[in-house]
Computed example of a mutant assay.
Amino acid sequence: MKILVLGAGAVGGYFGARLQQGGADVTFLLREPRATKIAKEGLVIKSGKGDAVLPVKVVTKGSEGGPYDIVLLTCKAYDLDSAMDAIAPAVGPDTTIVPMLNGLAHLAALDAKFGADKVAGGLARIGSTLGPDGEVRHTSPFAALAFGERTDRPARPSLVALDAACKKAGLDGGLNARINQDLWDKWIMLTSLAAMCCTLRGTTGDIMAADEGEALMTETVEECRKVAAAEGFDPGDKGIAHLKTYLTQRGSGFAASMLADLEKGGAIEGSHVIGDMLARARRHGIAAPNLRIALAVTQAYEARRARGALGKPGQ
Rank of each mutant, 00 (worst) to 15 (best):
G173E: 06
R34M: 12
T151I: 04
P33L: 06
G285M: 03
L262R: 13
K118Y: 09
E223F: 01
L193C: 09
A279P: 04
G239K: 01
P289W: 00
T27W: 07
D51Q: 06
A52H: 03
G232N: 07
N290R: 13
D211G: 13
A194Q: 08
K113F: 11
K2Y: 13
V221Y: 00
I126K: 04
I240T: 13
E32G: 07
E32A: 08
R150H: 02
S63A: 15
I179F: 13
T191M: 03
G308S: 05
A109Y: 12
G308C: 06
A267H: 13
A255P: 07
T191I: 04
I188L: 15
A241E: 09
A260G: 09
L183W: 00
T204V: 15
I38A: 06
A164C: 07
L145T: 04
L259G: 02
G173H: 09
Y68A: 12
G205Q: 10
A35C: 12
A300P: 01
Y246W: 15
G62E: 04
W184C: 04
K37A: 14
S257H: 06
I286F: 00
M100V: 07
Q181A: 14
D234F: 00
D25H: 10
I70V: 14
M100H: 11
C75V: 09
D172N: 09
K186D: 01
E135P: 10
R153W: 05
A124H: 04
A288E: 05
E214D: 10
S257W: 07
G48H: 09
A303V: 10
L101I: 02
P289V: 00
S128V: 11
A86I: 06
K264F: 07
A260V: 14
L80R: 07
I207T: 02
H284M: 12
A177S: 15
G103E: 13
C197T: 11
D25A: 14
G48K: 14
I97F: 03
A10Q: 04
L216A: 09
L123N: 01
M84F: 04
G285Y: 03
L43C: 13
A8P: 08
R153E: 15
K168S: 11
A267T: 09
M196N: 10
A309F: 05
I179Q: 13
K49E: 15
S82T: 14
T95V: 03
E223S: 02
F28G: 02
W187K: 05
W187N: 10
K168N: 05
